[in-house]
């Protein structure tokens, strides 16, 4: 016997070409046990409203496309079971789906991700290898399994932006570096092959930077990959404070030398 329930989905809608303001549409559909939120949206799109837009790709929790605000909390639609979500409904059997927060909606559940990608560039979100280009491919770096462990979990990040969506600081400072970017910085800085750690710390310690974080732990809590983001923030914060102090000392020295 298939177990089926009739469930309503209240979905955020906004098409800037047609709508003066966003609104919500409600769709009532039968949902079997074992169906994910993403498959429910697919059902609505295929059978009720083909105009509804959302991002999705792998359907397996690895590409990071389908983060949404589901019943108020940010989750991946493809790994969230509809039936599990019923316990989080305010109104019985009514699941609300909104775009992720702290981004602008382009259409319906699709948001503009470019500001986050730009931060990846601004905060050196890559390894700058100590190996010169002409030496590449000749020998391996020796990396201990212990070192690998320090950034293993951080490399799980799929850039779904759930942590950015739920970060309270982002809510009033859109230019804040954001937890996802700090996590990247941590991952790169723990890597002995990288040569840019000091630069990165200076960048994230600057205005709109890591020192604004109040460690509410929300990012770690919502992370779909269960990465302890706050540990990464704590680690880099200490580095940042150290560097800031050094910088201040140097400034003091400078003043003494040239009044």
């Amino acid at each position: 016997m298939k177990e089926v329930k009739v469930i309503s989905f209240k979905v955020f809608r906004y098409n800037p070409q047609a709508d003066a303001h966003p609104y919500h549409d409600t769709f009532e559909i039968p949902v079997e046990k074992g169906i994910t939120i993403l498959r429910a949206l697919d059902y609505i799109k295929q059978n009720i409203d083909p105009r509804m837009s959302y991002r999705s790709f792998c359907h397996a929790g690895i590409c990071g496309s389908c983060a949404m605000t589901i019943n108020g909390a940010t989750k991946l639609a493809c790994t969230t079971q509809v039936w599990d979500e019923l316990k989080n409904c305010v109104e019985e059997n009514l699941i609300t789906i909104d775009p992720i927060k702290n981004f602008t909606s382009l259409k319906d559940l699709v948001v503009d991700m470019d500001p986050l990608v730009e931060k990846l560039e601004k905060y050196t979100g890559w390894v700058e290898s100590t190996m010169p280009d002409k030496e590449l491919g000749k020998t391996e770096f020796r990396i201990s399994p212990e070192e690998f462990k320090t950034y293993d979990s951080a490399t799980d990040c799929i850039f779904c932006a759930s942590c950015v969506s739920d970060c309270p600081l982002m809510n009033y400072d859109k230019d804040y570096v954001s937890p996802a970017i700090i996590l990247r910085a941590y991952r790169m800085n723990m890597d002995s092959r990288d040569s840019a750690s000091e630069k990165r710390v200076l960048q994230i310690a600057d205005e709109h930077g890591i020192l604004d974080c109040r460690q509410c732990n929300r990012c770690s809590f919502v992370c779909v990959k269960k990465i302890p983001i706050v540990d990464a923030i704590n680690h880099l914060k200490q580095e940042a404070v150290k560097q800031k102090n050094q910088g201040l000392n140097m400034l003091e020295e400078k003043k003494k030398i040239s009044p």
Binding site: M131, E135, G137, D191
Partner: peptide, 22 residues
């Protein structure tokens, strides 16, 4: 072998053996 070493050299994380190699 060359391309995997190159990938490793530019920062791809690989699981490691005890001697530190891939």
């Amino acid at each position: 072998p060359g391309i995997i070493r190159e990938l490793e050299n530019i920062g791809t994380p690989f699981s490691r053996l005890d001697d530190g190699t891939i």
